[in-house]
Simulated assay, not measured.
Amino acid sequence: MDTNLISDSCLCVSFRQMQVVQHSEHTLKTALISKNPVLVSQYEKLTVGEQRLMNEAFQPTSELFRPITVYSQSDWITSHPEAPQDFEKFFSDPYRKAPTPEKSNIYIQPIGSLGNSRVISEEYVKWLKGYCEAFFYGLTVKFLEPVSISATKCSFRVNDHTQNLQIHAGHILTFLKKKKPEDAFCVVGITMIDLYPRDSWNFVFGQASLTEGVGIFSFARYGKDFHSSCYKGTVTKAKRTSSSEYSIFDNYYIPEITSVLLLRSCKTLTHEIGHIFGLRHCQWLACLMQGSNHLEEADRRPLNLCPICLRKLQCALGFDVVERYKVSGRRGRREVENP
């Protein structure tokens, strides 16, 4: 895993503090199509429209898919070296799972309140559901009834840096594993409470288990005032004395649901569910599956998958790429016109 990501197969152009990770056409073509005759044959069976879109991955003048720009040493691709995953590695991964007719639903489990009123919560859920069904075209997305923090029996703490409440991501995954419906491909929890994966970590946006088909994602840090001194989720010293009881979560602050928070939520949800399908962090082109260390980096990620990651998802779901984009476009227009 200690592979140098900026290898001989890519050109790194530096200016000021930024680096553009520009892979060669040959490297991108191999990452997408493979040299394996079986996988090449599969690629050649795609429709003309599908191949035309996919081939944009290795066109140097493409306006659709851009190279990755690294803005600082704190960005994910620099600070978390990982072995790149091309299509062939994805295809041959023995731990990769795909939906079956018996397990073809994505379940989303709200943990705690998602909005400061029932109407807002339901509207937020409707948008998330619609977006996920368009993104994971061919699967059904179902929402489970919300559960309280206390129902999960998770550990929690007050973050030393932000003074905000956090719940233990690993304990939530254990809870979701026990509650996973029989017909679920995966079940993911979403919450407006901040997460931490272990005592030594400051926070985590989300965590997922590929083998168990479960994930938990927090949208708490997507609120516009999370890092401000006036954030209403800050736990006062008086309240902290009773933080051994789950009552501390009663009427806990929920950030306002804005269009920016919704956009960030959609990105995180689809990115993390992508991991459950076996997609690793993308290191080829600007892509939704790029890792992110901080909110600024997460905001720079596009909504779309690059062609290499798109082929991986298509392999898992079997959709027609062009039809997926057409249906997604029609659904998006309907929801904008009839919010």
Rank of each mutant, 00 (worst) to 15 (best):
V260R: 15
V322T: 13
V260G: 08
D299N: 14
G278K: 01
T241Q: 12
K312G: 03
W201K: 11
F203M: 12
Q207K: 15
S218C: 06
L285T: 10
L317H: 01
R311V: 06
P307M: 08
H281F: 15
C315R: 05
N251M: 09
A316E: 00
R301M: 15
F217A: 13
K312R: 11
C230K: 15
I216G: 00
E212S: 08
L210A: 12
G215C: 06
I257R: 03
Y231V: 01
C287Y: 14
G206S: 12
G223E: 01
A286N: 13
T241L: 06
Y231C: 12
T211S: 13
I276A: 02
D250S: 06
L279T: 00
G291H: 12
W201C: 05
Q290A: 06
F219C: 03
D225H: 07
K237T: 07
K267M: 10
T211F: 07
N293V: 03
L279F: 00
I248W: 06
K224V: 02
A286G: 03
G318L: 04
L288K: 09
L313S: 00
D299W: 09
H294I: 05
G213N: 06
Y246G: 00
I254E: 04
A238N: 11
L263K: 15
R240L: 14
H294Q: 14
R311N: 06
H281E: 01
A238Y: 12
H227E: 06
I273D: 02
R301A: 10
I276Y: 04
P302Y: 11
K312T: 00
E272L: 07
F203G: 10
F205W: 14
L269A: 05
W284L: 11
L310F: 04
Q283N: 03
D225C: 02
F249P: 05
T211M: 08
S247L: 13
N202L: 12
L310Q: 10
R301S: 09
Q207N: 10
G233R: 11
Q207M: 15
N202P: 00
G215S: 11
Y222W: 09
I216F: 04
S229G: 11
E272T: 10
T258L: 09
T234M: 14
G213M: 05
I257F: 08
C309L: 05
